[in-house]
């Protein structure tokens, strides 16, 4: 076991002749060690980054070293959603639905510039400026696309995050806690987050007619009282 060093809790003296046979550790460490070594990603590719994700899975970079080689096409069986590519408005309802269907504990990685913040396509009318506008993200990996090495570095960061979690504190073991459910966005004249309906209604009632420059709309609506 290569991870024995991390698994063993310091502070307890283990006699030398038992050192190879006995480990003293905490439940948290044992549990996290198991979880961090078998993160199953969702087989979910959006765009260019997905190809680098496949390349990272292939023989040269070999994600199996991290216990992450089992890509599951079903969200019900996966722990990690690697959002690999540009998130478009048309795709966001499906992404949120997939996220909702994943069981806890679940993690999200925004792979690449597009998923992190819109990337080169940010100004596009069908592009969401980062998947974190809709679902919580644990790790951001920069790059366009990130190289497999960068993706692996991001996955190691995720493992570090898992290492620091404690059974007593995590959300999904609290009493009455359930899987985080995010309201699925609706496709209207533009993408609509159900959590923001009031804001949309308020601003739309004051908006300039369609076809005018949005820059003018800013002047019309950017009074400080607006953004309370």
């Amino acid at each position: 076991m290569t991870d024995n060093k991390e698994l063993n809790s310091p502070g307890y003296e283990i006699p030398d002749d038992l050192a190879h046979a006995v480990s003293i550790t905490t439940i948290d460490r044992l549990y996290n060690w198991g979880r961090r070594s078998s993160v199953w990603p969702l087989m979910f590719g959006l765009a260019c980054c997905a190809i680098e994700m496949i390349a990272a899975q292939a023989s040269r970079y070999d994600l199996a070293r991290f216990g992450m080689e089992v890509m599951r096409p079903s969200p019900r069986q996966s722990d990690l959603m690697i959002v690999a590519g540009t998130v478009t408005k048309k795709m966001v309802p499906s992404i949120v639905r997939l996220y909702n269907q994943m069981p806890e504990p679940k993690y999200v990685m925004a792979m690449g510039a597009c998923a992190s913040g819109g990337g080169p396509f940010k100004e596009g009318y069908n592009v969401v400026a980062g998947v974190d506008k809709f679902i919580p993200v644990d790790v951001y990996v920069p790059g366009c696309p990130p190289t497999p090495q960068a993706l692996i570095a991001g996955l190691i960061k995720l493992q570090e995050k898992i290492d620091k979690q404690s059974i007593r504190k995590v959300r999904w073991y609290r009493k009455g806690a359930d899987t985080v459910q995010i309201p699925v966005p609706v496709l209207g004249p533009d993408i609509m987050d159900p959590r923001r309906y009031d804001e949309i209604k308020r601003l739309a009632s004051r908006a300039v007619p369609a076809g005018e420059k949005p820059a003018e709309a800013v002047e019309a609506t950017s009074s400080p009282a607006e953004e309370a």
Binding site: K89, G118, K122, E123, Y125, V127, V128, A129, K133, V186, G188, P189, D190, I191, M192, Y197, E199, I200, K201, L203, A204, S205, A207, V208, P209, A210, P214, A215, A217, V218, A220, T221, S222, E226, E227
Partner: peptide, 22 residues
């Protein structure tokens, strides 16, 4: 670009649009 858009996001809606009446 977010700061130039009233919705502070990549969104635009027609005037008087009500999302609940879709």
């Amino acid at each position: 670009a977010e700061d130039k858009n009233p919705y502070k996001d990549n969104l635009r809606f027609p005037q008087g649009f009500d999302p609940e009446k879709i």
